[in-house]
Amino acid sequence: MIIVFALFLLTLLVITALAIVQTTNLFVAVMLTSIFSLLMASNFFILDAADVALTEAAVGAGITTVIFLAALMLTTEHEKPHLSRRKLNTVVITILASLIIYATFDKPRLGDPDAPVHQHLAPWYLEKTPEYMDFPNVVTAILGSFRGYDTLGEVFVVFAACIGVLFILGVKPPEGSTYNPYRSGLKHHLIPQVVGRLLIPFLVLFGLYVQFHGEYSPGGGFQAGALIASAIILYALLEGEAAALRAVPRSVLLGLVIGGATLYGGVGVVCILMGGNFLEYTVLLDNPVAAQQTGIILIEAGVGMAVCGALLSIFHAFAARPMRV
């Protein structure tokens, strides 16, 4: 039954993806992308990947739509038609696609118990997580400790993306049309204002729950950072960008990004100084299980800070630019 559900959702996913490629209206493409993300999250959910689905929920539904639209404010709404080399493109894509499809024939079936991943790695993780960390969410254990290097890499990718956007969009906008679309917000809309304000504290609370309950239920630093960032973006949409910057100024955002990445790296360095390997949390405290938990909580906090700061910085970088009319 899971297969039937997944196939159904994947079919819808393919239709949506084709429509996104087909349309030349960028606004329509953004709307369809948000449907794509909802379908993707349902798919992850059906395959029991609740942590990934929660990330998709936190990032895909709210923040990507907001950032896409903020980018769309700076450009025209229609894609320029370009017809050159159509045939060559089609040929290249067809060859590549058939190669990839041919490669999937060698892949093990979905959920095949004889697949290599279910022989060596997964059983080991499942067996060792209760022993080393003593909490139920294996995904958090893998992300935070067993494969902590990968997550460190991800945090630095987020950091680099934030720096890149700030370098390109952070320059002073040209004089002339300085109409900032996010200046006034939705102040003259009473009902969205009231409901939105009511929602903000709950979003932050839910974000904190996801952050600090990540060892026991789906979630962790990344999802929490995105949820809290979307709460502040909601505030910016309602009250105007300037009000959000007054509440959480740029310096705090940069501090969050840098502080988060430094906290993660710093935990690793402290581990070295206390006689272990990089990111080997067991040396942090006398009790190795408590030490693992402390290390994971610390680096999850770092991830949350970095993601929240980076997403908000990117949003403000786009929203501060004058609109192209």
Binding site: F27, M31, S34, L38, A41, F45, A50, A53, L54, A57, A58, A61, G62, I63, T65, V66, L69, A70, L72, M73, E77, P181, Y182, G185, L186, H189, P192, V195, G196, L199, F202, L203, F206, V210, S217, P218, G219, Q223, L227, S230, I233, L234, L237, L238, M323
Partner: peptide, 24 residues
Amino acid sequence: DLALAYALINLVGVLAVLEFIQNK
């Protein structure tokens, strides 16, 4: 939890669209 996250977040996207439509 996931459904709860979506119930909370959907409004952000719709309000962003509303703001976009108004300004553009």
